[in-house]
Amino acid sequence: MTHHQQPAKSLIIMACSATKGREVAPAMELYKGVMYSTFRANVPATWPEIVILSARHGFIEADRVIAPYEQRMTEARAGEMVGELTAFDSIKWPSGVRSILLAGGKNYQKVMRAAIERRIELGLLNADVTIEHTSGGIGYQRSQLGAYLRELGENDA
């Protein structure tokens, strides 16, 4: 690595989870689903950048304090969010991102990909950003997220 190159900056876009705590809390603490427990078990000492796609709130920062809610990411909800992306994707994403992992089911990934395309068109993300995504059943998605996080930790060391 030459002196002017920096390690690739990673961003994980995580779907919210149906399982939530009962109290108002930062989003990363409110969500209690299996992907979040996998994240907590594998996250390196230096946390990657995280953006969360909430079925109710749209894209939110991991530390945004929110109240528990009940809303599923149905195909119709995903379509509504894609149709009104500027309303649902109004936060500032981390800058300098070179690699993105989409962690969530197909309805979430549809919205995530639309937001990434929009951000590339607006010049907010580089067009050559590397995009990876979880796939398969929830157990397989958990193992993919865990492996991704462990690899980031090795790159930290």
Rank of each mutant, 00 (worst) to 15 (best):
1 M>I: 00
1 M>V: 04
1 M>D: 09
12 I>R: 05
13 I>D: 05
14 M>I: 03
14 M>Y: 01
15 A>Y: 00
16 C>Y: 02
17 S>I: 03
18 A>Q: 06
21 G>V: 02
24 V>E: 15
25 A>E: 10
25 A>F: 04
26 P>Q: 12
28 M>T: 11
28 M>C: 12
31 Y>L: 00
31 Y>F: 15
38 T>A: 13
40 R>S: 11
40 R>P: 03
40 R>T: 13
41 A>W: 07
41 A>V: 04
46 T>L: 12
46 T>M: 13
46 T>W: 07
48 P>H: 07
49 E>N: 14
51 V>C: 07
53 L>C: 05
54 S>H: 03
54 S>I: 01
55 A>K: 03
61 E>S: 15
63 D>V: 01
67 A>W: 13
69 Y>F: 15
79 G>W: 01
80 E>W: 02
81 M>L: 01
81 M>W: 02
82 V>R: 11
84 E>Q: 12
89 D>I: 07
90 S>G: 10
90 S>Y: 03
95 S>C: 05
98 R>G: 12
99 S>A: 13
101 L>H: 00
103 A>H: 09
106 K>I: 04
108 Y>Q: 00
109 Q>P: 11
110 K>S: 08
115 A>P: 05
118 R>S: 14
121 E>K: 14
123 G>N: 08
124 L>E: 13
126 N>R: 12
127 A>H: 13
128 D>V: 02
130 T>Q: 02
133 H>M: 14
133 H>P: 05
135 S>I: 01
136 G>P: 06
140 Y>G: 11
140 Y>L: 11
141 Q>D: 06
143 S>F: 09
145 L>S: 08
149 L>P: 02
153 G>Q: 09
155 N>F: 04
157 A>V: 15
